[in-house]
């Protein structure tokens, strides 16, 4: 195996329904409903998905939601800002744990 990730596997996602069809069907229904137009537009949801895809570092999701964002009319400026939002949260999440470090240090120090 040359790589753990293969572009063609994205189209094979449906194979995950083979051994647990009922669970797959529930996932599919829920997933579909999540991305319907609602209080948020489909385009906003797609940009959120793109940001989350970067946060969870899923290459399949990045591929799929880059395409989906373009297909929803978003441009590279908007998509780049979405990735920055994900990155800022990831960076901030690390940084805010610094308070834990400070608390422990404070507790141990004279």
């Amino acid at each position: 195996m040359s790589s753990y990730y293969h572009e063609d596997d994205l189209a094979r996602f449906g194979e995950m329904g083979k051994n647990a069809p009922e669970l797959w069907e529930k996932f599919q229904d829920w997933y579909g409903a999540v991305f319907e137009e609602g209080a948020l537009s489909q385009r906003e949801k797609s940009l959120i998905a793109l940001a989350v895809a970067h946060a969870v570092q899923c290459p399949y999701c990045i591929d799929a939601y880059t395409q989906d964002c373009l297909q929803k009319g978003s441009n590279l400026d908007q998509m780049t800002e979405a990735v920055h939002v994900a990155s800022a949260i990831r960076g901030g999440a690390s940084l805010v744990h610094g308070l834990q470090m400070r608390n422990v240090t404070q507790k141990l120090s004279m």
Binding site: S41, Q42, R43, Q67, L70, Q71, K72, G73
Partner: peptide, 17 residues
């Protein structure tokens, strides 16, 4: 029309933009 190999967005949404 899309500037690339993807499908167009919903007409009403992109029209508003």
């Amino acid at each position: 029309n899309p500037v690339g190999a993807f499908l167009p967005p919903p007409q009403a949404s992109i029209e508003a933009d």
